[in-house]
Simulated scan of single mutants.
Amino acid sequence: MTTTTSSQRLIRMLAMVPYLQSNAGVPVSELAATFGVSEAQITKDLSVLMMTGVGEYHGELIDVDLGALERDGVVYLRDADFMPRPLTLTTREASSLIVALRTLRQAATGDQRKAIDGALAKLEGAVGASAPVDVHLPTVDAAIKDTILSALSRGHQLDLEYVTAARDERTRRRVDPWRVFTEQGRLYLSAWCHRAVDVRTFRLDRIAAAEETELPVERSRESADGGTDIPPALFTPGPDTPYAVLDLEPEARWLVDEYQAEIVDDTADGDRTRVRLYGSDMSWLRRLVLRNAGLVHVVEPRELGDEVVAQARAALAAYDG
């Protein structure tokens, strides 16, 4: 089975635009054969191209004749004349790209850094001054990061030693690496975990050791999710996911941004914010409340509130003893 990386897909879609501008009414089957992918993949690529442009209104986005595509299986492309034009950026847009590239550079290595540094130099030159923002991510062992990136580029499995802070334990795992990405200022590895027999996300700063094997990955990202390039959420609550309704003092309002939470009432009691906060299990939720004692108040379930009070009293009693 041939897999496609995000960069390969981007290059293919960029090449498809001038090809379709020069060849109107190309059958999907012919387009798929020309670019060496399936007809289903071509349809997915076209759906992404339709969201590409210089604005958000008619004439500013690439247009695909959906009627001809669905009825006759042929592709007509319109409103893509902006592609050859030089890109113009405002100072704010260029500064945003500079910050994004600096963040991306934290996860890059070797030739990737050279390409990013070249793009940064051009953007900073265009802005006229360096963007007044620097990017700092949690420290990640450089050797571990390089090992992970090497396994990713070569399609090899990884042996990891991972620290799970919530349970204060270390586990060894064999994984098929899929991608490294940045979320909320941290670097993560998305992978298929053979121990869990499921997709798992690992924080790079919590990987204590990483060893690249010579074994090829058994399960690719494309085979698991149909080749989509949309990153999965780090944590997606389901109908059975444990949660607690909490009242947050203003000093604990940051929990809404840090964890999976929904605001129930922004004026629950004075300056407090009532939220529904999800966790992996009730013991994790109990530890979160205890760590933020005095700033987080349990509304429901009542059992959680009782457990927090009991554990806090036991801790105080231990000090008295």
Score class of each variant (00 low, 15 high):
R302S: 14
R221M: 13
V256S: 01
A131D: 00
E262A: 10
R219P: 04
Q8C: 06
V217L: 02
W284Q: 13
L246N: 07
Y76F: 14
G305H: 07
V308P: 02
D320I: 15
A317M: 13
M83H: 06
T43Q: 09
D168L: 11
G55L: 04
V135L: 06
E222V: 13
P132T: 08
Q41G: 00
Y57G: 01
G270W: 05
A15M: 15
G55V: 02
L31C: 05
V245S: 06
W284D: 04
I230K: 06
R9T: 14
V163R: 02
I42M: 03
Q184D: 05
E218M: 11
W254E: 01
R102G: 04
G270F: 06
T3E: 09
V54K: 01
L189A: 01
D271Y: 12
S223Q: 13
P86R: 13
D176F: 07
F202R: 01
E169Q: 08
T34V: 12
T182R: 04
T267I: 11
R12Q: 08
V197E: 09
I207D: 02
L248T: 02
Q41H: 10
P132I: 13
T228S: 13
A115Y: 10
D247C: 05
D63S: 06
A312H: 14
E212K: 07
A142S: 10
G294A: 08
A80T: 01
E56F: 05
A107P: 03
G270Q: 13
R85N: 11
V197Q: 09
L277H: 10
L89S: 10
P242C: 07
D257L: 09
R174W: 04
S280C: 11
L49I: 03
F35P: 04
E211S: 14
G226N: 05
A80N: 01
T2S: 07
W178Y: 11
P86N: 11
S190Y: 01
M51T: 15
E307P: 00
I144W: 02
L158Q: 04
V133Q: 05
T34A: 12
P27F: 08
